[in-house]
Amino acid sequence: MGNINSVVIATGTHGNEFTGIYLGKKFEQFPKLIQRPSFDTRVLLSNPKAFAAARRYIDKDLNRCFASEDIKNPQLASYEDILAKNIYYLLAEESKHQQQVIIDLHSSTANMQLTIILGSKHPFILQLAAHLNAINPDVRICYSQPTRDSNFLCSISELGFAIEVGPVAQGVLNAELFQKTEALIYQVLDYIESYNHGMNQPQTSTLTYYQYAGVIDYPRNEYGEIQGMIYPQLQFRDYEPLNPGEPIFLTFDGTAIAYQGTSTVYPIFINEAAYYEKGIAMCLTQKKTLEI
């Protein structure tokens, strides 16, 4: 693989996730912060109309609009579908002629700390993830196998990944998480600069990551109405082990509902506000180790 030629920092894919949006505005105001000698870096505000309205999206979730079948489908013509097509053809065309890294910035109401979500196991991305995990105690690595229903904006490039930061409420800024995200971006850019110059990076032989294994919905009645909440002792325990038989929900009548799985899992996106509409109370992951 040749040198990295450009980095795109995508912000506002969800218009009410302010951490990335305002960090991008800072970078546009002070562009020298993200420029490195060996490659170009620019900011892309992905969904400006949703940001102006302080909403996650206008018609549909932009970050679920990048499946190749959807991009090619002329019948899909909502605001976000058209936006996704424009972004896709712009960045995909650039990626044909250069090595391009796409960093898609998100924030979460769940206790995700600094989570890097990988959609591929490209060697460069794996080594970058291992490096960040080794130098930054807040960094967690997740791997999501791309499917038709989960092709995200960052999947446009083989060298794309997303960053989820939390916990932070929708439509607000949290200074501590803003600063942590900013520092993480600089660590990514510095790593790429060192890579382009052929400088030796600290070699990490193993990478611990969390692989998506499924989702769990809230308990519901026959009308589809939610009948329970995340169990109090599970709230904000993202990335901690969950064993069979341990409680995960508390119903409105005070009954605890236990996890019915057969093995230990590691839930993430616990009680994510944006996932209520998707029927997701938490995502389950398996903890794995990869030799790099």
Rank of each mutant, 00 (worst) to 15 (best):
I185V: 02
K180P: 07
Y212D: 09
E176V: 14
G228V: 13
P244M: 08
T289H: 04
I268H: 05
R64Y: 04
D104I: 05
Y259G: 09
F39G: 10
A110R: 10
L177T: 00
E277R: 09
N271T: 08
K25G: 01
L90T: 15
G279M: 02
L132K: 11
A10F: 03
L83A: 14
Q145T: 10
Q35K: 11
A52E: 15
P167A: 15
R56V: 02
A169F: 09
T109H: 11
A274Y: 10
A50R: 08
R220S: 08
F236G: 02
G279F: 07
H106V: 02
D61S: 03
K287E: 12
L207K: 14
N243I: 04
H197E: 14
E193P: 07
K72G: 06
C65R: 11
E176R: 07
I21K: 10
R140K: 15
I141S: 11
A183C: 00
T115V: 11
N196K: 09
L290C: 10
L83T: 15
E80K: 13
P219C: 03
Y186N: 10
I9M: 00
P123F: 02
F124Y: 12
Q235K: 14
I4K: 08
N63I: 09
L62F: 04
R148W: 06
P247I: 14
T262Y: 05
I9R: 00
S155A: 08
I82E: 14
D253V: 10
F30L: 01
D238Q: 09
Q75L: 14
I185Y: 04
D59P: 07
H122T: 14
F18Q: 12
L159F: 13
I268L: 13
P202T: 04
S78I: 13
M282G: 04
A129C: 13
Y275D: 14
K288P: 01
L173I: 13
G24C: 04
L234A: 06
A50D: 10
M199N: 12
N136T: 13
K60N: 12
L126W: 06
Y57N: 05
H97S: 14
L44H: 04
A54V: 06
I156D: 08
G198Y: 07
T289A: 06
K288T: 00
Q29S: 00
G119I: 03
R55P: 02
A183M: 05
I21P: 05
V265K: 15
F30Y: 07
S263A: 15
K96W: 04
C154K: 11
I4L: 13
L284P: 12
F269P: 03
K96S: 06
E193A: 08
N3L: 11
H122V: 14
P137R: 06
I141D: 12
G224S: 01
T41R: 00
N5L: 02
L118I: 14
F161L: 01
Q98L: 12
Y191E: 05
T147D: 07
N221D: 15
C142N: 15
Y223V: 02
